[in-house]
């Protein structure tokens, strides 16, 4: 009987020891993965922000105005007001 109890205790402690080591090792791996993911998230946030800034900058009215001028799109000074639009309306 005494031998049986000692064996059970020994095996139990061995199992707990191995489980502890495995969990500890997994914990370290998870921590490493978490840190890498965190770094990737930070990098993507920064890239996202840069793209957003570039996009808004490119589509700003100021930039569009300068681009239009450089391409020769001059401002239409004012619409042509038809005093007698019967021909336009006839179409």
């Amino acid at each position: 009987m005494k031998i049986g109890t000692k064996s059970v205790l020994f095996i139990g402690i061995l199992i707990l020891l191995v489980t502890n080591i495995v969990l500890f090792a997994k914990g370290i791996v998870m921590a490493d993965t978490a840190q890498k993911i965190q770094i990737t998230i930070e990098r993507l946030k920064i890239e996202n922000n840069q793209l957003q800034t570039k996009l808004y900058s490119s589509s700003s009215l100021d930039k569009l105005d300068k681009t239009a001028q450089s391409l020769g799109f001059t401002k239409i000074a004012s619409p042509l007001y038809l005093e007698n639009p019967r021909y336009a309306q006839a179409q």
Partner: peptide, 13 residues
């Protein structure tokens, strides 16, 4: 050190 600043796409509009 990473920080944050304001950006004005329309400058001083």
């Amino acid at each position: 050190e990473k920080g944050q600043a304001r950006f004005y796409p329309e400058s001083s509009l």
